[in-house]
Amino acid sequence: MANEALAGRALRPQQADPAARRAALNQVIIYTVLTVGAAAAILPFLYTVSVSLMNLTEATGGRALPSTPQWSNYTEAWRDAQFSLYFMNSVKITLISVGGAVVFCALAAYAFAQMEFPGKSFLFTLLLSTLMLPEAITWVPNFITVSWLGRISPIPWINNWPSLTIPFMASAFGIFLLRQFFQQIPRELWDSAQIDGSGHFRYLITVVLPLSSAAVMTLVLFGFVGAWNALAWPILVTTSSDWRPISYGLLVFLDEAGALLHLQMAGAIITMLPIVVLYFFTQRHFIEGIATTGLKG
């Protein structure tokens, strides 16, 4: 009892403190906004999961939950959309794109962050300006480029992996992301490396990249999502199913005058699973990468 009385006396002045009340109110507002934001982000996903387990009547009837989960929708979607073929295609396209992006973006970002050369600022500004271009604007120039490269190269580019991967290996966003991170690495490390006889390439491999795992994982995740979800460009540069990605498989559920919404949603869940799994494993690095490269608002 005595303790409670003491505690009560101790709390009373704090409760009366307007600053503390404002702080508490701010917390409530922040958490409310965050909760609404989180709900807005998660609800479409939950809706997709729910519809993917419905039958056709329920899927188009505005119901929130399926009466009996139709797990067979997933096997049906997998079979109808030929996901066995497209899934493997997407795995190959994504691995090559992301692997290449890490290599080329790291090299370019290192040059912009750690080296001095004439026109560096101008080139970097030019590079950043390409971020402002809508993706669709680049399709025709990129198509002309890959067509020409296909004509002079020993392997075909159109309807083959080079056209699907190489144009995305040197991404302006990836270079910017890594450059921001590389710039934070203390200059003294480079001085020490030089004393140890290290050149730029060895320094990049042994010092810079190991210190930048968060940024590299962020680039991997962004690159993975971009390559995995691509549709318009792959359709443009492929002529058969041999190299078409998983997103193309989803098109089978759309037709000129009919759409199988429940199978479409089941297919969508199948296609998004790898991204969710990757994010699950890389989220710590991803959040750190975003927080330390100046990308957050």
Binding site: K92, L95, I96, G99, G100, V102, V103, S147, G150, P156, I158, N159, N160, W161, T239, S240, D242, W243
Partner: peptide, 17 residues
Amino acid sequence: LVAALVLAACPAPAAQA
């Protein structure tokens, strides 16, 4: 990366431009 390139090189594209 190397594995992906090897994997990619395995199936010869059936269709051409």
